[in-house]
């Protein structure tokens, strides 16, 4: 479907489509969120509910060769979350099977 027929004119239109849908948000600082989008604004501040945050913690092991860092994943869940827009890298609908 091309952009004109779907009425998509600017990127925020795509985000608007995901209102009250579950979205995947990538954040700075190796963080990712999935949650239900309730609101957003021009700064990409987001209100999410039922959020699961995934934090990637890269540990460079002593003596290990370059690029052989271990990645630890920390997760936490929040009922409601305000995400400040300056940390948002990407907002997308979750991949559908």
């Amino acid at each position: 479907m091309d952009a004109s027929s779907s009425g998509i004119q600017e990127p925020f239109d795509l985000i608007r489509l995901s209102l009250s849908e579950r979205v995947f948000v990538k954040l700075r600082g190796d963080r990712e969120l999935t949650g239900v989008l309730h609101a957003y604004d021009g700064h990409m501040n987001l209100i999410l509910s039922d959020v699961e945050e995934t934090i990637m913690i890269v540990d460079q092991v002593e003596g290990a060769p370059e690029g052989h860092a271990t990645v630890n994943v920390a997760k936490r869940k929040m009922e409601m979350l305000f995400v400040r827009g300056d940390g948002v890298i990407l907002v997308s609908p979750p991949s559908r099977t």
């Binding site: 004109s4 027929s5 009425g7 998509i8 004119q9 925020f12 239109d13 608007r16």
Partner: peptide, 19 residues
């Protein structure tokens, strides 16, 4: 008020036309 609200009437009629 929503600047993102470009799914306006004109668009939809256009869309309908194409459809």
């Amino acid at each position: 008020h929503v600047t993102a609200a470009h799914i306006s009437k004109a668009d939809s009629t256009k869309q309908e036309g194409e459809g």
